[in-house]
Computed example of a mutant assay.
Amino acid sequence: MTPADAAPAAEPRSMDERMHRAERTLNIQGAHHEHLANQISELTVGIRELERRIPELMAQGIVAAVSSPATWEAAQNAMQARALNAAGGWLIGSLRFVVDKLLWACLALLAVYTLGGWPAIAAMLKLKAAS
């Protein structure tokens, strides 16, 4: 017996069996394709709903972020770090020094005004100008 004479055991023997097998395969594939089409349809509806809600969801997220004190603190820290990098530490340090000195001067003037009023401030400024 030659290999051409031997029929494979796994193949159906008649044309009807082959047609029946092909029909079952097509039915299974058809059901699978129908299931995939349903899933694609559901996903399309979901995507359209999400696209419709994006502006609303974005607005809610922005309101939540803006109303959080942690967001403002993080923004302030980021702006300070950016300003230090952009202007240099010496400039910010100099500004802090000047503001600090002005605050102390204002406190001193307030203390003198509290103790003696305008005449005391005028006398203090005359003493400062004389020296």
Rank of each mutant, 00 (worst) to 15 (best):
L107C: 12
R18K: 08
A83S: 09
M1E: 10
T71Q: 00
Q39M: 11
W118A: 15
G61S: 01
M19N: 07
H20A: 15
M15Q: 09
M1H: 10
R52L: 03
A122M: 05
M15K: 07
W104C: 10
R18M: 06
P12I: 01
Q80S: 12
H20N: 14
I92Q: 02
A86Y: 10
A75N: 12
A59R: 04
G61M: 02
R13I: 06
A108R: 15
A129F: 05
A31D: 09
G93C: 06
R21T: 09
A75L: 14
L26Y: 11
Y113M: 04
F97S: 14
M1Y: 09
S94E: 13
E51Q: 05
P12V: 00
S41L: 04
L57K: 05
M79D: 12
A122P: 01
V98H: 05
H35K: 14
A111L: 07
V112M: 03
R21S: 11
L127H: 12
I92N: 01
E42P: 02
V66K: 13
E51M: 02
A81D: 12
G93V: 04
T71M: 00
A37Y: 03
L43V: 03
I28W: 06
A70W: 06
L91V: 14
P12G: 01
L43S: 04
Q80L: 15
W104Q: 14
A6Y: 07
I92C: 02
L109M: 09
N27G: 10
G117V: 01
